[in-house]
Design a protein around this nucleic acid. Structure first.
Lengths: 332, 332
DNA sequence: TTGTAAGCGTTATCAT
DNA sequence: ATGATAACGCTTACAA
């Protein structure tokens, strides 16, 4: 026997499908007794709403598309985990797409999401820019937009970002407070806004303490371990006694370099990273880092999405605070 | 103006929607010239198939549900990342659900997936058992099943698991080969089949080398860092000079304990972990570990799913090999 | 408060 | 190779 529909319920009760539909949808214009009998019969028949039919009729699904560069990065997987939790609780399912940092993949993902008529799109853009048009196109069906972490200006919808400026500021200030005198920065490719803002924080902290900045000890490379190692070598050659790093892996590379040169950490050389990856607490010496509250960020992004879906008109622009976690690598 | 449909294309071309539908679906019974004109007109009008309508008509979506305990664990996020990549390439979208190790959440997730009529379900079960009925129910609509990592017997569909036995065997054998004499095990709660199999591998390696096993140096606790520390203390008290650990965090805890007691690693004490988490290569001393090839596992699980979706009848039961990665913590 | 009836866009069946 | 037609299950004006 085939799955029961609202018609079956209606027939069994001697009423019409519209009333059943209304009762099931919680429409207030349904007599309490009618609602009760409908719900009971539905239960009795093992009725399960045909979500596809419903979505088809309404022209939109109860699905949220989440687009990230990669899901297997701790930061993103935490965000997605938290977002999924809240969205699921609100009755939405979550479709994920990875761009692997490619604009072409991002376009494809957006196309796919719009084709399955998602109710909303949550996105952290790939490092390759220039997908605004595809995003606008994907929203043409009425999907709501929440951008998080990596955000484009000039688009509709809400945004959720870290307080990157203060992350950079706090980390740098901590190094200053610990007596480091010549503090370099491995500050990431400056095409990424977040990295720009962290760098601004770094500069502000130096300025506030009357320390002149020096471009020769700033290394705007991709923040991988190897680059951290290389840049740290140059920084040390140029007289640095500390490094602010906009990533943990580059910070770790820097630490390896300093240790390989016989420097003691934190006595001779201080290092702070960013992201508070799980490994930072486990390495020797443990690595100070800026925690980005990924869980909170994911949760807030999901809430912002739900607000839009629930009819909120004015977009929200949320800043999620960061927390500097001092550890051994910079505490003397 | 509203989104164009196949009716618009048909009207514009003076043919019927059926033909347009067939042309778009790649039905061979369509004249080449007709197909061409349809595709061109579709492109011209900016036609996008209404996937919901199509799914509605066909009774099934092009969506695969993936159920895992948590997405923010490296092992699972890698699996999902790889699976998403392959499934997307095959035209499927991926819905994710987290159970957070709770059977109740797993039931809810399965219900949700069946309600959105997913074409297939890929699942690694929560540690709370007993959801077979919900799974069977969720499959009643015809969805295909692939179980991975944590697998129940007696269910339809394919399975993809690690070669846990050989992981335990190889790691233990390596310790033996490095001259460790009294090798304990932090082997995880034995309700998990994978841990059972790893433990069997451990026992077999000992037996093959003529080393008697000793239950007093086997610690079947939850494999968190703290338990690793505690168990290692007992193991050391009981004369162990090495530990096989079925997880990396417990192995790390064990390492901390050994170091805190003034033991040198690997000279005095050897440790191997399992999972090859990112941090294992970064800690001091670096931690030997069993790599589970999470990417490969995710990819193979996705392929198994695609095979079922493409009509394969006989389920596959795939074992994904593991690789022991020797590092400093056990190499002397 | 409930019923009527139309229609969402696609696809499958049957006929031509 | 194409056309005609019905149907998938639900929602929603509109009418009663």
């Amino acid at each position: 026997m085939t799955k029961p529909t609202i018609v079956d319920i209606a027939d069994a009760l001697g009423i019409t499908p519209s009333t059943v539909s209304r009762a099931l949808a919680g429409n207030p214009n349904v007599k309490e007794s009618t609602r009760k009998s409908v719900l009971q019969k539905a239960d009795e028949l093992g009725y399960q709403r045909n979500v596809i039919a419903s979505s088809f009729r309404k022209g939109v699904t109860n699905t949220i598309g989440v687009v990230v560069p990669r899901i297997d990065r701790e930061f993103f997987s935490k965000i997605i985990g938290a977002a999924e939790f809240r969205l699921n609780a609100a009755g939405y399912s979550v479709v994920i797409c990875q761009t692997r940092e490619k604009a072409a993949n991002e376009r494809k993902a957006l196309k796919m999401l719009s084709s399955i008529r998602v109710a909303g799109i949550m996105i952290s853009h790939s490092s390759e820019a220039g997908t605004e048009d595809a995003l606008v196109e994907a929203l043409s069906g009425g999907a709501k937009l929440v951008q998080f972490d990596r955000v484009y200006a000039g688009l509709p919808g809400s945004t959720v970002e870290n307080d990157d400026f203060n992350g950079g500021y706090a980390a740098t200030k901590h190094l200053i407070d610990n007596g480091y005198k010549r503090i370099g920065a491995i500050n990431g490719l400056q095409s990424t806004i977040a990295y720009q803002n962290r760098y601004k924080g770094y500069l502000a902290a130096l300025a506030d303490s009357g320390i002149p900045s020096d471009g020769s000890i700033v290394f705007p490379d991709s923040i991988v371990r190897e680059n951290g190692f290389t840049s740290a070598g140059l920084a040390i050659d140029r007289g640095c006694d500390a490094l602010y790093c906009t990533g943990d892996f580059s910070a770790f590379g820097a630490m390896e370099c300093a240790l390989s040169r016989g420097l003691r950490i934190p006595e001779d050389f201080g290092i702070v990273g960013t992201a508070n990856e799980g490994f930072t607490a486990l390495v020797t010496p443990s690595l100070s880092s800026v925690d980005q509250h990924a869980d909170e960020l994911g949760d807030k992004a999901a809430r912002a999405m739900l607000n839009l879906l629930n009819g909120r008109e004015e977009p929200e622009h949320i800043i999620v605070g960061v927390t500097f976690i001092p550890r051994r690598s910079s505490s003397r």
